[in-house]
């Protein structure tokens, strides 16, 4: 991976004039320009189809920008080779609306997966996973399978997995989309805690009301463009 450029040393995410289209008639991101500072909590909101998920997938190295400058944790996404994407992902955690837990693996194994791929020692993995599951309130369900958990519990397990490797940046794509209000608040609480401990959080949600529960800068994305930002950290 390329070394962080001095120009982005205070930014975990820096996008300038980023475009992304799926085919010639399907522009999804149109001249997106934004930055997210170290330790910031940003709520990216906008209607469905605005391009929030595409933007997060791009920041996670899943997609490449068609044009513009996109730098995540000092890595230029335009020049990032496919064989190096995993190095970026080890620093960027991701939470999904549909949890993406492995149904045939226990909660322990699901959370441990992110540490196993790093080749961490077994004892360290054991300690870290138990600590995280305890932190998200699932300390007694380490041996359970995702299918036996409620949606809220599954999303908490997904949060534990996303932060297991202590990422510098956490991306959350509609993490409360499938949850009731109480469980959604639990998840927001966990994300706020992580942010307080120094993890940069970029949360995408169509639900702008989430800002009431967060001390976050709010950015609005519509028709593939950032309309503006307001709120907490700036």
């Amino acid at each position: 991976m390329s070394e962080p450029s001095p120009a982005f040393q205070y930014c975990d995410v820096y996008l300038a004039g980023v475009r992304k289209a799926f085919g010639p008639r399907q522009p999804v991101l149109v001249e997106v320009t934004l930055d997210v500072l170290h330790g910031e909590f940003v709520l990216l909101t906008g209607p469905s189809g605005a391009g929030k998920s595409t933007l997060l997938r791009l920041l996670h190295g899943e997609l490449r920008p068609d044009a513009g400058e996109a730098v995540v944790l000092g890595t230029d996404l335009a020049t990032l080779r496919a064989s190096q994407v995993h190095l970026l992902r080890r620093q960027v955690g991701m939470i999904f609306q549909d949890f993406k837990l492995l149904p045939r693996r226990t909660l322990f194994d699901n959370v441990a997966l992110g540490l196993r791929v790093l080749g961490q020692p077994r004892r360290a993995i054991e300690r870290r996973v138990r600590h995280l599951l305890h932190w998200v309130g699932l300390g007694r369900r380490v041996a359970d399978y995702p299918g036996s958990l409620s949606g809220g519990e599954q999303q908490r397990a997904a949060v534990a997995r996303a932060v297991a490797a202590e990422p510098r940046l956490l991306l959350a794509d509609e993490p409360t989309g499938n949850l009731d209000a109480a469980n959604a608040l639990d998840i927001l609480q966990l994300l706020s805690e992580l942010n307080l401990r120094g993890t940069t959080v970029l949360l995408a949600s169509h639900d702008a009301s989430l800002q009431q529960h967060l001390e976050a800068r709010v950015m609005t994305l519509e028709h593939g463009k950032v309309l503006g930002s307001h709120g907490a950290n700036r």
């Binding site: 064989s83 995993h86 992902r89 993406k100 791929v117 997995r161 490797a165």
Partner: peptide, 16 residues
């Protein structure tokens, strides 16, 4: 397929 996709998302190297 699903497991491989998730392993990639959590940073598994191609070799892994």
């Amino acid at each position: 397929g699903e497991e491989v996709a998730i392993m990639r998302l959590v940073g598994a190297s191609p070799m892994f």
